[in-house]
Design a protein around this nucleic acid. Sequence first.
DNA 1: TCTTGCACCTCTAGCCACTAGAGGATGTAG
DNA 2: CTACATCCTCTAGTGGCTAGAGGTGCAAGA
Lengths: 140, 140
Amino acid sequence: MKNITIGEAARKSGVKVPTIRYYEGIGLLREPSRSEGNQRSYEPADLNRLTFIRHARELGFEVEAIRTLLSLQDNPLQPCATADAIAKARLIEVEQRIRSLMALKAELEMMVEGCGHGRVDQCRVIEVLADHAQCTHHGH
Amino acid sequence: MKNITIGEAARKSGVKVPTIRYYEGIGLLREPSRSEGNQRSYEPADLNRLTFIRHARELGFEVEAIRTLLSLQDNPLQPCATADAIAKARLIEVEQRIRSLMALKAELEMMVEGCGHGRVDQCRVIEVLADHAQCTHHGH
DNA sequence: TCTTGCACCTCTAGCCACTAGAGGATGTAG
DNA sequence: CTACATCCTCTAGTGGCTAGAGGTGCAAGA
């Protein structure tokens, strides 16, 4: 067997050791077999699953979404509409977040550029925060 | 006096009632005076402070940063370098976040476009997640 | 064989910024 | 005087981990 320890699994997957145990605890990862000394022993399939999870987390999918995606991966003959819907929903979220952050960026730039490095009572940063009416972005 | 209840303060500031109490608990907002029946009674200055906080939170400043910004606002004769630094740091964070989200967006678009709405075993969404090597964005 | 020292184990508690809910008091309109 | 919204305090929960205490397992060097 080429089973590996949790530390090795962490190194190879890029998921930290306590996080792996956490994923096991919430049922994202199956309980691995144990060595005689009660230490977790992972198979290559577990490593793939961990890498899948890490990648999905990096893409910002929530754990519940990942749970669904993993169960789809386990049943490859099902239609992929659900996976598609999850990815599309995430895409829309990301697009909205980008738009919102662009507005924040514009407002922050205005604050920072307007700051003459004088005293607080003339500071554009504080001023804009105190008086919302001054900000160009009225969406919020 | 034109003091107002917590509910009115919530309506006027856009900060929810429990959140106002939370801000008081962590010391962002001073403890207001109380009515005979022990109910909080806010002055206009408190409302300004609440609005300041809300606006800063919307811009993504952390509570600790807001604490500093508020103390600067309370001491208007100080130099505003600290306020400027906080805003600049937040701007850099926002810019990084935008860049990262753009990369995610590209990857998600690739996944979604590649999905032929067939079965999971041919699904690009699952495939890309399972095999990180397939993704164009190798930064993560 | 012994010891050193790292990696592993379980368990609990903490992080951030709230949010929810229980269980009770107050304030106001009809 | 009653109904009902709003207020009060307190505790616990959210998500996705992370940190630390206190103990065990294991491989390599003396």
